[in-house]
């Protein structure tokens, strides 16, 4: 278990955090390779069932990152999403998912440093939570 590395699914908004991830690359900032990024047009696009699905597939962590309030490319998608995520995160935690597995951030396309910092922090805390135990659908039975 000592060399266990978590797999984390990151849902990044195309207009900001995905750009920040790109810019972190341009600036050659380094962070561990634990993320698999799924690009979405807006955090408003993220259906809670995607996050459940990620957990069901055994993701050790989920990270959602979008635009700062007021900066949404679609005016207010992130503000609706903020409400959804608040309730989703609380309910997941209430029903026994470790808080350390779920991460949300606002990162603009210019904030490469913040992206790399948060990336490292997310990986660190997911590692603390250890390998995912719950909500995983046994692969053989996946419909």
């Amino acid at each position: 278990m000592s060399n266990w590395e978590p797999k984390i699914i990151a849902f990044l908004c195309n207009w900001c955090s995905y750009g920040a991830a790109d810019l972190a690359g341009v600036s050659r900032m380094q962070y561990p390779p634990n993320f698999r990024v799924i690009r979405v047009p807006c955090t408003g696009r993220i259906n809670p069932k995607f996050i459940l699905s990620a957990l069901r597939h055994g993701a050790d962590g989920v990270w959602v990152s979008g635009c700062h309030p007021g900066d949404c490319h679609y005016i207010e998608g992130n503000l609706y999403a903020r409400r959804k995520f608040a309730l989703l995160k609380n309910l997941l935690e209430h029903t026994g998912i470790e808080p350390k597995r779920l991460h949300f951030s606002w990162i603009s396309s210019a904030e490469a440093t913040k992206f790399a910092d948060v990336a490292r922090e997310v990986i660190r805390t997911v590692k603390e939570a250890g390998p995912a135990q719950h909500f995983i659908k046994k692969q053989a039975e996946v419909a």
Binding site: A21, D22, A24, G25, R28, Q30, Y31, P33, V37
Partner: peptide
């Protein structure tokens, strides 16, 4: 995205970068 979000940010870990 295997450059900006992979090779460029994991240049110290070619094995894991390849897996990613």
């Amino acid at each position: 995205n295997i450059r900006n979000q992979d090779s460029w940010v994991h240049s110290g870990d070619p094995t894991q970068a390849t897996e990613k």
